[in-house]
Each structure stands twice: as C-alpha cells, then as structure tokens.
Amino acid sequence: MIDVLRIKNARATRSGWRSRLGALGVLMTGLIVTGSALAQGSPKPDWSVAEMPSQKGRIFLVTGGTSGMGFEDAKALTAAGAQVVIAARNAQRGQEAIERIKQEVPNAQVQFESVDLSDLSTVRALGKRLGSTLPRLDVLINNAAIMAPPQRGTSADGLEMQFATNYAGHFVLTAELLPLLRKSDSPRVVTLSSIAVHRGSMNLDDLQSTQAYVPFAAYAQSKLACLMFALELQRRSDAAGWGIQSMAAHPGVAVTELVARGPGLDSEQGRQWSAMRNNMQTAAQGAVPTLYAATAPEARGGTYYGPTGEQEIRGPLGIATVPAAAKDAATAARLWTISEEITGTRFPSSAR
C-alpha cells in the first residue's frame, strides 16, 4: 500500500514524460533481476483458476484463510478437489468461511485449525496436531498478514507484531511442518510477499523496530523478509535434499481487509485507499499468482510470481521483479540464522 500512495503522489507532481521514463526504468530493472527466472519460462499471462489442474487427493494448508486472498485460495483449491486446512486465529470466522465455501462447493473438504502466528507456542501446537492427524502436506501457503498498525505492538514472544505475524510465525510454521511436507511426492511452500518490498530495507540490527517504529516501513521490512525467506528456503532445500519447491508470490494491490485492520479506514492512508478502490484488483484476482505457484505443473521453485502491469499493481500474471535487497544471499543467510535464534527454531541440516 505504501508503494501505491507514493506512486499517486509522484504522478501529481511529475510530468508525463518523466512518468513514462520511470515506468521504462522499472521494466528494464525487472528484466535484469529476473533474467534467470525468465529463462525457465514465464507463466501464461492469461492463466486463470479455470486452468488449475485437478487437486484431488492433495492436501493444502492456508494461513489466514478466513478472508481476502486466503479465503479465495481455499475456495478455489476445494473446488479443484483438494483437502484444505484453513489456519487462523478466529474460530467463528473460520466456521463462517467454511460455510461460505460449502455454499459454492457443496462437497468441499475443508477444516479449520486455530493458530495465532504472533504466538509461537500456538504455531508449534498446530504443527504437532497436524503431524499426528495428517498423512502428509502437499502445499503450505504462508498467506496471513497484518499491515501498518499505527502503534508498535509486541507479540507473546516479544517480537514486533508485523515481524511476528507476517514473517516469524511462518518461519516457525514451515519448520514445524517440514516433516509432513517431505512425505509428499511434490511438496511446495508458497510465501506471500508484497510490492512494498521495493520500499523496504532489512535492518538486521533492529528487526523489531525498537529504535524507531514507522508503520509502513516495518510492514515493508516484514514482507521483504518473507521474500528473502522464500528464496533462501529453496537454496537450503536444494543443498540439504529436502525436495521442496519454495516460491513467493504477491497480489499487486487487491481489495482486502489489510487497511481496515491496520491503519484504519479513517486514516489518511485509508481515505486514499478508499478513493483508489475501484482501480484495485479483487481478492480473487490477487489470489491468482499464489494459486499458480501452488498448483501449476510448470511453476518453479525459487521464482517470484505476481501481476506484471504498471508498477506490478495489477495486470497479467508473470514473473515479479525481485529487488536487489532480496537477492542478497549473504544477508538472507544471516536473516535465517537470526530467525532461528530469536524463535528457538532449527531447520534440519540435511535430508535425514
């Protein structure tokens, strides 16, 4: 969202030729940073949920699946025959989501599991429950997020709330579910990032924003961490032989509850968001990159998927632009090590 607000302000002050030149710069940057991924082949720009292959017999977990894009993920996957676990905080909203899905998909195989990603004890409890009840997990979709609460909050584990919910909780959840994922013939992990990463930076000396809390900056950092995690997970899977394909995706700018539950609709950001609402993608459109990464046979690990229109706000599906900060493997490795330390979580060092 911070990207959109700045883009709007820029358009108000810059001439047409400078805007066009800036767009060309973004396009060229995208071509450079995604060159290796493009060599693998871009997805069909008009790929849609209708082209999703049957997911019968496959098991998915979607965090934050009670609303927005997570809900659209769960609904589309159940319609394709998958068994879906929706993991979120609010049991009532979870039941409502299941009822809504079953209205459209009467035979949907969908269940709710309680988890608060900002409380790592509940993340570990979820991992244990699923480890004893599921035969395997084919795809984990790390979708849940909060965005830019005005005041800095801390989690049950003492972490800044956006860092905890958007990133650290998913880091631990992925580690907890790794044994189940490795029981799948073709396991995938899809982690949601954001176009906000292009305004983000990774401050490894102050990941919890204790020195200064700027709501959107903290959000951008958490989403940059998510993207770095997705790419680093693929590198580590390849090195350790886990057999997991790890992808990242972003929705562009879609109509969800993030603003209402974050800065609030009465805030300056909320008012600008409301004014721009008609030009945004729907939640269903925003879910397309995630669903492609999760289900398309041709999707590849280590790739970042998203819309490819102007500034990647909306538009045809394609390979998203990876900012230079997210491509820094050394920083990603340091972030991984720090994440293990502050969460008390260790990934295995090999396939054993």
Rank of each mutant, 00 (worst) to 15 (best):
R236M: 07
E72T: 11
S121N: 13
Q221I: 05
R235A: 06
V49Q: 02
K128C: 13
A287H: 04
H170N: 08
A294C: 07
P297H: 15
Y304M: 04
Q109G: 01
G68D: 07
R199N: 05
D3P: 01
D238V: 14
A88G: 10
A218C: 05
T165E: 05
K327E: 08
A23I: 15
R124L: 06
Y305P: 00
M52R: 01
V214C: 13
G252T: 10
Y219M: 08
L233F: 10
V322W: 07
Q103E: 15
T78H: 01
A260G: 12
G270E: 02
R100K: 11
P307S: 08
A351Q: 05
K183W: 15
Q234R: 05
G302S: 03
S209L: 05
T165Y: 13
T191K: 02
G264N: 02
T29V: 13
E51F: 10
T34I: 04
K44H: 08
G241S: 11
F112D: 02
V62R: 02
A284R: 03
W47D: 00
W242T: 03
S193G: 07
A283Y: 11
R6K: 12
L31P: 10
L178K: 06
V62E: 03
A87R: 07
K8T: 15
G65D: 11
V110Y: 06
T308D: 07
A220I: 00
A218D: 01
L181F: 11
D266V: 12
V33W: 15
A74C: 01
V214W: 11
S349M: 14
G169P: 06
E113F: 14
F347N: 04
A108C: 07
S42P: 04
L177N: 01
L231I: 09
G286Q: 05
G270H: 04
N278Q: 14
T337M: 11
E341V: 12
M280C: 04
A320I: 00
A284D: 05
A330L: 14
I195F: 05
F171I: 02
D205Y: 09
L38D: 12
R100Y: 02
D116Y: 12
A37Q: 09
V190E: 07
L224V: 05
T343F: 05
A97L: 12
N279V: 14
L159V: 02
V105K: 03
P289I: 12
L120E: 06
I141L: 12
A333G: 03
R14K: 11
G158A: 09
F163W: 10
G30F: 04
A80P: 00
K75F: 10
W273E: 09
S194M: 00
E51Q: 15
T256Q: 09
A164G: 07
R352F: 11
L120R: 03
K102V: 12
A10R: 15
G302T: 00
D119K: 11
T295E: 06
I2N: 08
A248T: 11
T321A: 07
R18G: 07
A260C: 03
S349Q: 15
S246H: 01
K183C: 13
A74S: 01
A80G: 00
M280E: 01
R236K: 06
P316H: 08
N142E: 13
I342S: 05
A217Y: 04
A299T: 06
T122N: 10
S267P: 02
A275L: 15
